[in-house]
Design a protein around this nucleic acid. Sequence first.
DNA 1: CACATTTGGACTTTATTTGTCCCGCTGTGA
DNA 2: TCACAGCGGGACAAATAAAGTCCAAATGTG
Lengths: 339, 339
Amino acid sequence: MRNLIDVQRKLLPDLLNIMQKRYEILQHIRLMQPIGRRTLSTNLGISERVLRSEVQFLKEQNLLDITPTGMSLTAEGSDVLKQLEDMMREVLGLKELEKKIKNRLQLRDVIVVAGDSDQSPWVKKEMGRACVARIKELLEGNTIVAVTGGTTLAAVAEMMTPDSKYRDVLFVPARGGLGEDVKNQANTICARMAEKAMGRYRLLHVPDQLSHETYQSIIEEPAIKEVLDLIKASSIVIHGIGDAKTMAERRKTAPEEMEKIEKNRAVAEAFGYYFDQEGKVVHKVNTVGIQLEDVQKVKHVIAVAGGASKAKAIKAYMKQAHHSVLITDEGAAKELIRD
Amino acid sequence: MRNLIDVQRKLLPDLLNIMQKRYEILQHIRLMQPIGRRTLSTNLGISERVLRSEVQFLKEQNLLDITPTGMSLTAEGSDVLKQLEDMMREVLGLKELEKKIKNRLQLRDVIVVAGDSDQSPWVKKEMGRACVARIKELLEGNTIVAVTGGTTLAAVAEMMTPDSKYRDVLFVPARGGLGEDVKNQANTICARMAEKAMGRYRLLHVPDQLSHETYQSIIEEPAIKEVLDLIKASSIVIHGIGDAKTMAERRKTAPEEMEKIEKNRAVAEAFGYYFDQEGKVVHKVNTVGIQLEDVQKVKHVIAVAGGASKAKAIKAYMKQAHHSVLITDEGAAKELIRD
DNA sequence: CACATTTGGACTTTATTTGTCCCGCTGTGA
DNA sequence: TCACAGCGGGACAAATAAAGTCCAAATGTG
């Protein structure tokens, strides 16, 4: 059955919404029957008119009776509802997860896709697609989109599709070099995403490790400065979240910094910042680009991260990012609400 | 899985149609890839514009690639299609049955509902609902609807629902007494149906067994004659089909008539007419009302009959009723296409 | 008997789908 | 190399469906 639902989720994504809506209507009617339209509509939080259409439909399907006293389920309606209950648990699993996480972590919005990216790599792509869909909702006119690096963001870039909306969109890397592999660098991903979107992009060519003097002079270079200004002006930021240890190891982190990270019990990493489990910054990679205080001023911040193994990191980072949207997967989501 | 599909058939009947549409699109693309919109749309028999919307959707779901050479499935699309194939066989079962029967029996239209009314009595109600839905499609202005008797027609009456469309509809019994039980008589059912529909009705009060003289004089009675004229003017006829033997036994058929029926190998009964397996009339109950030759001139004739045991009768009757619409159930349908 | 609910009809407004036409691109065969 | 057929996709009008709004008739309840 899980199979069928998954296929349907692909083939008719809004089917689930409609199914859920009708399910809730039946559920409420069973609970409060006989009940009138007005009472029910306020109870369900949907407009009376749409409830009316739905109810009319359900009546035609012989699932409910409609009398001057109010509406109530027919025997058939009870049967259907009973069967529905089982399957809705599966169908709705993800939506419920989203709600729970949104409440528990106090986030602006949460999107959970099926699967666990620790186990099945294609789940990252699903998160990517969800992210792309979300971005498209946010676009208006000449938006600047800042992106970071990481394998998850690479998946987002891979799932990007061209759209006329992107005509005036500019992609920029959020921060300079953080010591990553080329294929996971913000620059690379930024370019890839822009190409896929058929949009424009600018890159930030700043070497990884710099002395203080060189650093000061390089950020005064007009070409660099221009890009940095664009980054600060971005209205959408898309970033990944990493496990602190993994990220520190993946980057060529100096031993003394490594020690600092470990000593302060950093668990999460994002933007080159390391966070402990309370969401406090305990270390920061020194590079140009957007800073954490800038991020908090950006209109739309989207964090993309999944896999059960990343749950701790996500939880820690999100403690100081309540105005972000989180896109994650079932694996991480289940861990997030475990305790 | 069958469970889920059944519930969905109830809860979102048109979503399954969309699912089918998308399934067929994917199927055709796999077969003919790479293929262009225009070619594909003529092939599928849908307008190019709606195909375009569908294709765009499928592209967004990452199920197909779209290139200047044409459209082709992605790996994901192939997977989904593969999984779909299994479940569509179940989803589409009834539709395929409908098509096959329509072609094989050369009928105007066929509707098949799930189940077998021999085994589960509620299936008759399903046929009833399907019939009612069909009737509503046909109504226009002040229509006259003629109905016969029988348990199936009783179910149709039971499933009738009021509608503003019925304001100018008049229900009449198709033929006079045929020797049935009161609750299965055309008169009873006609009245019941009209009540449920909140429509008007006229009845035909003619005793069962009449001498020739009385018969001649009674049909000249103004009150009777008026109803008979209405019956002949009806534009919709709804009737059941019975097994000849069963019907003959149920009615108080005289022994010599019984013999005639058996001798001529009657298998089907409808309207008080008995048919052999070639669809030839072999006997006829003598009563007033619509006659077989009148039926053939009526605009819309709907035959409602289900249950595996009735398949033979349905087949026989339908041999001479090609312009009818048949509403039946899965049980009968499977028998109908067996050989 | 009056009141508070109920459903359901009717009409307007808004959103979505579909039809229609056309443009620019690309691979193919002359 | 060039022309052409077939491709996708943009743009806008027309048709259709959904939702908002208001009101009338009916019915159970105090």
